[in-house]
């Protein structure tokens, strides 16, 4: 494992911890999209089908369990926790899941490295992860006021994606036959979706002002 991959995993982990911290300690999920969180739960559930059958390393298995556990517990908090669920911006968070899920599933059935159940679902999880942030970005546009923790959560997610691209570049030059077009293109698209958000994030940070997106 190289330093970029590790930094990517750690920023990913930090993003989830920041979100759980916000929900668990402040008992609020204001500004957080349940649609995005449910999509992430589906992403991890379909990607880690190999968790008990293919052992890669203790690190991998541990991280998979953390991402599965955290994504499902965030969904549980937002849907079922008696205090947290009251702060959910239900009327603003109207993005339809199936607009993203159905095209990703169809695309994964056409474009994949091998037409098997697990491989198609694994590819589906990559495509879905690429667009899963969209409901969250739409919600941010609508509410406009972004609290620090929500801003940091999205910033850390974007950083995770950026580190993964450096990881792929590194692996391409250091490992023989390391060419994987599907995750690369899906990952690149995903990172580009954060571009706009990054621009405003750094702008507000530089001017020491509260993060606000344009209407």
């Amino acid at each position: 494992m190289n330093i970029f991959r590790f930094a990517g995993d750690m920023t990913h982990l930090a993003s989830v911890l920041v979100l759980l911290l916000k929900i668990h300690t402040i008992k609020s999920c204001a500004g957080v999209s349940l649609k995005t969180q449910e999509l992430y739960a589906i992403v991890f559930a379909t990607r880690y089908l190999d968790i008990f059958t293919d052992f890669i390393s203790l690190y991998n298995t541990f991280m998979k369990l953390v991402f599965l556990g955290s994504s499902f517990s965030i969904v549980w908090y937002m849907r079922s926790h008696k205090i947290v669920r009251r702060s959910y911006d239900k009327d603003q968070d109207t993005f339809r899941h199936y607009f993203l899920i159905v095209p990703c599933l169809l695309l994964a059935m056409i474009i994949n490295e091998k037409f098997t159940f697990r491989e198609v679902l694994w590819t589906f999880s990559l495509f879905l992860e690429a667009v899963a942030i969209l409901p969250q970005l739409v919600l941010l546009q609508r509410t406009r006021n972004i609290d620090n923790l929500t801003g940091q959560y999205i910033f850390l997610l974007g950083a995770y994606r950026a580190f993964y691209i450096f990881n792929w570049i590194y692996r391409y030059f250091t490992e023989p036959h390391y060419v994987h077009w599907i995750p690369w293109i899906a990952g690149l698209l995903q990172t580009l979706l954060y571009g706009d958000f990054f621009y405003y994030y750094f702008h507000s940070w530089k001017n020491n002002k509260k993060l606000q997106l344009p209407a």
Binding site: D54, I56, N60, E175, Y178, H180
Partner: peptide, 10 residues
């Protein structure tokens, strides 16, 4: 079967 190398990523 052999795991594709990218399946070792999260």
């Amino acid at each position: 079967r052999e795991q594709p190398q990218n399946h070792d990523e999260l």
